[in-house]
Structure formats: C-alpha cells, structure tokens
C-alpha cells in the first residue's frame, strides 16, 4: 500500500507539488492524470525515492521510501525519459539488474522475450523510442516488483503493444497483488485499467476518485417544461453544471439515480432524460469552476 500524506516539493523557485496526499491500496492500480508540468513526474520520483520531499510523508507498506534499500528492492520505477548505459545490450542491462536486485527472475525475463520479441544482443540505445520503452517494461517486470511506478508507460507504443503492456500489468496485479501507480496526460489511456484516478493540476491534487463510485455518483439529465422553467428547480438543485437551450435544461447533478429522478419529477417536467456521461465529463463537472481549465488537460 502506498500512502502519501501532505507532500510538498519545491524546485528552486518552482513549487512542483503542494500538500498532495494520495493512497494506493495493495493490488490496485492508481492513475495519476494531469497536463504537462502538473507535477506527476515529481510525484512519481518522490515515490521512487529519487527526490526527497520538502514536507509530508511518503510511505510504502508503512515505511518511508527515501534511502530505504529494502523497500526499493521491491519497487520498480520506469521513468518517462529512459536511461540505459552507453553501448549496453539488453542482455548487459539484464545482467546489471540481476546483480543489483536479489529477486531478479531470469525465467520470467526469458519468457517475456517472446512477448517483446526484441533480440537481446541489440544495443538498447540503437533501438527506437517505443522499443526502448518495451525493454524498460520487460526488465521491470522481470524484477518481480511489489510496487510498480510507471511514468507515461504507454507513450510511444503502438496500439497492439499498449494492450499487451496493459495486460501484462493487469496480470501481475491480479496474480501477485502488485500495486501500481501510473501516470498519463490522457485520461482515456487509463480509463480501462485504473481503479483510482487522481488529477494533479499545478502541483495540487484537485480530485481523487474511485472510478466505480464516480460513475454511479454523477448524472447528466435533460429536462424540459411546457411552460417556464420553475425557478425553484435551480434554487433547490445543487447542479455541478447547468445549461439552458430554449425550454430544455441540461443539468449535471451528484446523487444516486433514484434520488435524482424523484427530485426532478417533483417539478413535473414535460421531458426527463438521463444521458450517458464520459469519464472526462464527469471530471470536468466535478471540478466545477476549475473544470473549464481541466477540459484542456484531459483531452
């Protein structure tokens, strides 16, 4: 389990993270979403023990991360910008990790060779960006981590490979209860694998949600009245968003499905529809005033 409490991190005169908290339960996948410069990478590097936080606590399994060798042996961090030693082949790099991590699983490494299908004798730096990313995942998975920290892992992969990687990660989560935190600037990338989503914006965690709860909790409705829209409706409804098109009112409201229906029907609408809501829309409306900004982040 990953617990981050009120973490702040400052780079010179730039405040990268401010008072961020998050929790990732064991065996779940947490998606960290945000635009460029939102602080995702900083957050992940803090979790990987690369940066020391200025304030707050970062714990994995109730132990602080920084300079914690035992913990870091069970953690794999795959950064956005990959680094491989000059002139090293995949095999050289595998040997390097095997020498550092006691739990290196050579069988798995060999087995995964079939999935990734890249010659181990090849020098990594001569590979394409996408292939290098695959090598990083390949080596990372062979380390059999309990915690995997992935910074934009799907970036630069083709759709087939994306799916393959997602499957491999999901498989480890399911089989070994691996805990995963994964970042992306694209919410849609994470929609299908994450249990939790957190949105970072300008160094602050603006929203964190369990995806299942979220979907059940926010609804988009369309109501129309034969005459004037009763003013009491807007007054009595805590709408996240409302838009009026002629006599038709579109509302986004929080609450259970049945509550909303009964509340709306008390105003005797001519038409009452519940419309489908995408994940992006949910976030945008959840954000309220900030939502407008967020719109640009999510797409």
């Amino acid at each position: 389990m990953i617990e981050v409490e009120n973490v702040s991190k400052q780079f010179e005169d730039l405040e990268a993270l401010r008072d961020v908290s998050l929790t990732v339960h064991k065996g779940s996948i947490y998606g960290l979403v945000g635009s460029n410069g939102a602080g995702k990478t900083t957050m992940l590097k803090l979790l990987a023990g690369i940066y020391r936080p200025d304030a707050g606590n970062l714990m994995i399994d109730s132990q602080p991360v920084f300079e914690n060798e035992a913990l870091k042996m069970r953690t794999v961090f795959i950064p956005d910008n990959l680094y491989f030693f000059l002139n090293y082949t995949i095999q050289d790099m595998a040997d390097f990790y095997a020498n550092i991590y006691p739990q290196w699983n050579n069988q798995r490494y060999l087995k995964l060779a079939n999935v990734f299908n890249i010659e181990v004798k090849r020098r990594i730096r001569t590979l394409s960006k996408g292939m290098q990313r695959q090598v990083a995942l390949w080596l990372g998975l062979a380390l059999m981590p309990d915690v995997m920290i992935l910074d934009e892992p799907l970036d630069g992969l083709d759709p087939v490979m994306r799916q393959k990687v997602k499957n491999l990660i999901i498989q480890d989560v399911a089989e070994r209860q691996m805990t995963v935190i994964i970042s992306s600037h694209n919410l849609r990338d994470l929609e299908d694998i994450c249990d939790y989503i957190g949105i970072l914006h300008q160094g602050k965690m603006i929203i964190q949600k369990d995806l299942d709860d979220l979907r059940a909790d926010v609804h988009k409705i369309q109501v129309a009245f034969s005459g004037e829209i009763p003013p009491a409706l807007l007054e009595q409804t805590q709408a996240l968003y409302h838009e009026q098109r002629g006599s038709v009112l579109i509302l986004i409201v929080r609450g259970t499905y049945s509550e909303i229906i009964s509340h709306m029907q008390s105003f005797n609408p001519a038409v009452l529809d519940i419309l489908p809501l995408t994940l992006e829309e949910i976030f945008i409306y959840e954000m309220g005033d900030n939502g407008y900004e967020i719109k640009n982040i999510l797409y």
């Binding site: 023990g49 870091k72 961090f77």
Partner: peptide, 15 residues
C-alpha cells in the same frame, strides 16, 4: 545528467 541520476537513485542502493 538528470536521467542517469534518476535511474541510479531509483536503484535499491543507499547514497
């Protein structure tokens, strides 16, 4: 070098 420093300090080895 930033990326090399990140990679090295993510390893389970104390400074």
């Amino acid at each position: 070098a930033n990326i090399a420093a990140d990679m090295t300090h993510a390893l389970p080895i104390k400074r």
